[in-house]
């Protein structure tokens, strides 16, 4: 088992690169100001990867919201830099977004909380409808959500989470809980799904990743395990070796 401190990719080195990433993100926010008049199909400048599902105005809201759910700090990146928007985008564009993992036969009726999700909207439809309502609301007010102050954004998200409004037929709590759950998934799922970039979510917690053999370690109670995490992709390389 490696217990290095200073090799490339070690936590100490990661902290440096995370700090650098934070600076880059801040720069990118300024760039957005300059492209406001750009055509609608131009991607925001801070999206390095093309998006499969979200339109630019949707991506702006989602990026701002998930970065309030998991904000960047001095040591660890926030949701956007961890690839959470890319994760949600891929999920919505794929089988999950089109309710491909759900029993999807009617009649669709309103249920009780113990009966779980019963809206007639696929996850992708739910996102699209709800975000449209949010963005319409803020464009009517003249300032889009992503331009609000952090406190204003937090207050609005709290209102959604306490079911303070309805978004094109979606109780706002359903949408906001859904967005929060997807944010957590994107921050902590294996990087093969587009989030958890460079395993930052795992590094932050100290989760060593899905591949491990603890037979010799489990009864060394209280030891500090300090090694590089291993993801599905990196473990495939290990298996080749």
């Amino acid at each position: 088992m490696k217990e290095d401190k200073d090799e490339p990719g070690s936590r100490r080195n990661f902290l440096r690169s995370a700090f650098a990433a934070g600076v880059t993100a801040a720069t990118a926010v300024i760039q957005i100001d300059h492209i406001q008049a750009a055509p609608r199909n131009t991607l925001p400048a801070d999206n390095a990867k093309p998006l499969a599902f979200f339109r630019p105005d949707e991506a702006e809201f989602v990026s701002a919201a998930v970065d309030r759910f998991i904000p960047p700090d001095e040591e660890w990146p926030g949701a956007v830099d961890a690839g959470v928007v890319d994760y949600i985008d891929q999920q919505m564009a794929g089988k999950w977004g089109s309710a491909g993992y759900m029993y999807w036969h009617g009649p669709f009726k309103e249920g009780t909380p113990t009966q779980g999700y019963q809206l007639p909207f696929t996850p992708a439809e739910l996102f699209r409808r709800s975000i449209a309502a949010v963005n319409d609301h803020f464009s009517a007010q003249g300032t889009p959500f992503h331009r609000l102050s952090a406190d204003e954004q937090d207050n609005y998200l709290k209102m959604l989470l306490t079911n303070g409004t309805t978004l094109n037929g979606v109780p706002s709590k359903v949408f906001a809980d859904f967005l929060l759950q997807h944010t957590v998934e994107g921050f902590f799922s294996d990087p093969i799904y587009g989030g958890n970039t460079d395993m930052v979510g795992w590094r932050m917690l100290g989760f060593p990743g899905p591949y491990a053999d603890y037979y010799e370690l489990i009864d060394k109670h209280g030891i500090k395990l300090d090694r590089e995490p291993v993801s599905i992709a990196s473990s495939a390389q290990l298996h080749v070796m």
């Binding site: 294996d190 799904y193 599905i232």
Partner: peptide, 15 residues
Amino acid sequence: QAPDIHDELKYSIRK
């Protein structure tokens, strides 16, 4: 077998 089987999203979350 590895590497696919330890996928939290696929097995724990998507069941």
